[in-house]
Design a protein around this nucleic acid. Structure first.
Length: 275
DNA sequence: TTCGACACATACGT
DNA sequence: GACGTATGTGTCGA
């Protein structure tokens, strides 16, 4: 009787802030090309759908989508820095020119530190393609709030889409007269990303989320900032990650507790302890 | 047990 | 408010 009623698939309540991301871990220093001063990247990310905190553990379901947004900024700088600056990465004793920055999303298994593949679907799900979450060329931006992300999911209205584009994307051609020293000149396409939004992400169906019959593996989502060099090599610059997460697989035992406690004339007794 | 496939239900955006 | 969609999850059968 006191069993929690399931939230409907399309309910707004499916949107909730998930596990918090760590402070930014810096792997390689970034310096301004103009004066060789060190500049500090801050990677910000948030999970907006798909994870629940239950008894101090963050739980996701392998069958369900999650949504994640990420962006980065430089400490004590604003977006205008990109209009006039280029950057270098310190790699050992040398410094390497960066042609643009990218961000990527990966999942790591805490037990063996291996990447576990993620997949994204389109809104068509089974009727559309699947692909790994793309690595996106990115410039600095603030991270939009949770309510914004919730409100832009599944929009079709042209006006809303235009607003979304303005907040989440940039076009080099819109910046007008760029300094010849602007890194924006060496971004790969006209369209660049300000806010990386990963929707309809799932752990690959092949994921084995159990260590033993009774114990779960743990996973971490990690958002990485990379610097792309003139030769196209990608260097990890910084990242931020979630605490360890539990991914519940498809086993019916992972769903039983959520069932409504109704007894039908012909059904077996189903008496789960109320949550 | 696991998976891909298909099915059903239901709140959302327009 | 009707209509088409998106998505959690129930189920079948290999």
């Amino acid at each position: 009787m006191f069993t929690k009623k399931k939230t409907a698939p399309r309910s707004g309540e499916q949107y909730k802030v998930g596990p918090p991301f760590s402070n930014t871990h810096i792997i390689r220093s970034i310096i301004l090309k103009s004066n060789n001063k060190v500049i500090i990247p801050i990677v910000t990310a948030r999970v907006d759908r798909g994870f629940d905190k239950i008894n101090d553990l963050w739980i996701g379901y392998k069958r369900n989508y999650f949504t994640l947004v990420a962006s980065f900024q430089f400490k004590n700088q604003d977006e205008s820095l990109f209009l006039k600056e280029r950057f270098k990465i310190v790699d050992g004793d040398s410094t390497i020119n960066i042609t643009y920055f990218t961000m990527r999303l990966v999942s790591l298994c805490c037990e063996d530190d291996l990447e576990s593949p993620l997949v994204q679907h389109t809104a068509k799900r089974d009727r559309g393609p699947q692909y790994p979450p793309p690595e996106l060329p990115v410039i600095t931006s603030e991270l939009p709030g949770h309510e914004i992300i919730k409100s832009v999911a599944n929009i079709r209205n042209d006006k809303k889409i235009a607003l979304f584009n303005q907040m989440f994307k940039g076009e080099i051609s819109n910046y007008g007269k760029l300094s010849k020293d602007s890194i924006l000149r060496s971004y790969p396409n006209n369209q660049i990303t300000k806010v990386c939004k990963y929707e309809r992400v799932q752990f690959a169906s092949s994921l084995d989320c159990k260590k033993t019959v009774t114990t779960s593996k743990h996973f971490r989502l990690r958002v990485e900032l990379m610097g792309v060099t003139e030769t196209g090599e990608k260097l990890l610059v910084a990242y931020s990650h979630t605490p360890s997460l539990i991914i519940r697989g498809r086993s019916p035992s992972n769903y039983k507790g959520l069932k409504q406690n109704v007894q039908l004339p012909n059904s077996k007794v189903n008496s789960e302890t109320p949550a």
